[in-house]
Amino acid sequence: MSFEALRALVQGWAGAGLLPAGLTHGFLVNALLSGLVIGPVLGGLGTLVVTKRLAFFSEAVGHAALTGVAIGILVGEPYTGPYASLFGYCLLFALLVNYTRNRSNLTADTLIGVFLSVSLALGASLLLILASRVNIHILENVLFGSVLTVDDRDLTVLLAVATGVTALMLPLFNRLLLASFNPALARVRGVPVKGLDYLFIVLVTVVTVASVKIIGAILVGALLVIPAAAARVVASSLRGFFLLSVAFASVAAVAGILLPVQLALPVPSGGAIILAAGLLFLGALLARLFMKGDEG
């Protein structure tokens, strides 16, 4: 089914009052579709990000997207989706961080701090140079995400990336996890630890880049971290951890996209999504406090 047909269907249901009225707008249907894709994938991948202590890394890759956009505009890619520069720069950034981490005696957070700062400085400088050329709203969208600008090309990129990432993440889930428990034991069990390390970095990066449109460069990393963190707080098994993280991320994504439109609030989608995720996290913390209280 084409996006067109799907959109018409949803708009029809919204018109008939079966779905929120906002969904009579085509752009919102697009945004909602991307939210329904982003949520589960980021939520699922997030459990690995949190377990492998890559939270700061995923934030940094999101921020690198800012620089990627600047480079894209500089080299003349379309403002609305400079994907070649985005993917190119962010992958370069991520692989460079990982490569250097394996070869320096610095801890990951220090190293990421260095790379992040330099990358942001580069991005900010480029954007100021380009300031005369670009509409400031474009910057706003890049930084904080927008539901207005998700077109069919963005949806296609997102769907392709999400499908690829899911197809790799699910069968490799155990091995990705095992590699971080004990690399020696993982290798004995046939896990190519180094290779999977790089693969995971690439998965996080491409999913992050594909989600920039809707969540924005500043906040995209947070949807890999907050839902998983919230799930971790309340879960008592791996199953609970994974399923709750997927659920939290999906709820946050959908709520963050629909609520501002429903309530006519001038909030960017990225901000609303992460605020929703933050509320879920708070709820999880409170729930844990109560559970602890019951135990005595």
Binding site: F173, N174, L178, F181, L238, R239, F241, F242
Partner: peptide, 12 residues
């Protein structure tokens, strides 16, 4: 499960 099986451990 994480160590021994292929099926994602979160599926049980």
């Amino acid at each position: 499960a994480v160590l021994c099986q292929r099926r994602p451990a979160f599926l049980g």
